[in-house]
Design a protein around this nucleic acid. Sequence first.
DNA 1: TCGTTTACAATGCGATCGCATCGTAATAGC
DNA 2: GCTATTACGATGCGATCGCATTGTAAACGA
Lengths: 206, 206
Amino acid sequence: MVKVPKQVDHAARRAEIAEALTRLTATRGLEGVSLRHVAAEAGMSMGLVQHYFKTKDEMLLFAVERRSQVYEEGIKARLESGELPSTPKAILRAIMTEILPLDESGRGNWLMGVAFFIRAVSDPSFAAAYTEGVPQLFELFALLIRQGQEAGDVDKSADPMHESAILWALADSQGTNIVMKHRTPDEVLSTVDYYLDRLFGSAPAG
Amino acid sequence: MVKVPKQVDHAARRAEIAEALTRLTATRGLEGVSLRHVAAEAGMSMGLVQHYFKTKDEMLLFAVERRSQVYEEGIKARLESGELPSTPKAILRAIMTEILPLDESGRGNWLMGVAFFIRAVSDPSFAAAYTEGVPQLFELFALLIRQGQEAGDVDKSADPMHESAILWALADSQGTNIVMKHRTPDEVLSTVDYYLDRLFGSAPAG
DNA sequence: TCGTTTACAATGCGATCGCATCGTAATAGC
DNA sequence: GCTATTACGATGCGATCGCATTGTAAACGA
């Protein structure tokens, strides 16, 4: 009963489509994202896109989850490259620089996230997926700050929860600032470093 | 040549429509915003909406500019109510609490802003209008922080530009957190106060 | 080889979009 | 009263959307 004709790497095809979607989001903005446009950007027929994603929502969900994976892998790669010390401060900085839309592909990923947020506002299933990863990142931030406190780098009077919120806000909002060209990536990074230096005193980050 | 039949308060009508648009954005999300839906929400015919706004973009632009005015007036009202001291810290807090989507109407206004941001990504004319007010608020933040430094409340080592960026980020991102129900208004306000207390030492805010 | 299953293309359908057009009612100046 | 102008409603048009349907080529299992 197991017939396997014309074997094609499903995952690779889906990734292709997701990347076309991301590219399209970065260049044409979020309104240019239709099944037809994505297909054209990916250089395939619309029917083929439909073959790999039954609905548009399924495609968006896949692209966003893929985005999260890419972020995660990027952060791991930075930390395991050995170029950075494994201090909480360095890890936090690695996360920030990975997430922020510092280049063109980052811009696409960022706008993908915004598009997803838009959907999540009125669509419960999207909201669930959107909400999923947030507390984890939040907790991670707080954990790293607490480790900084235990190491004596972060002042005991600092509140890890509030500081996490500020850090999250910095990533969230400054990314938007870059996309809108209100601030340059350099300016944003310097503000991030300013904040981290204040929080961690003068403890080395790398 | 000046014939004025059926005199109708144009501004009031446009405000009505803008409020229907905001209401619709808050409840149905940003995708429910079409000329037909706005007309239905406002309880008028679609032709009438078209009569007051030649294009959809004109309607959106009006609604967003109106939003800015409402914010501005709200902040002025708070400051002139006499319930708050005119310290930089109090003014900053007033701005934050005015902008943040703490209630249902605030939610609508917030989502309006996001919708506008989306358009601004790919539409230059929207981008211009969106970019317009940002540097001013930024400069205001920096000015107030500098005043705090001159008054001796804010540490001299604090960088007004970076601190402004953090403050802006707090407003920007935490608003989204409230809309997505990741954090409650109370939690957000406590983080704002935490930050302001840190920045202004223990100087009184009210 | 034959049949089943998958990969992919092409097209059509109903819904909805923004916008234009047309018609009508009401009110001003002449 | 007549006319110009405005307020407002109704409808239609072309474009585009997501999605369903259909057709065809290819490749595996039997």
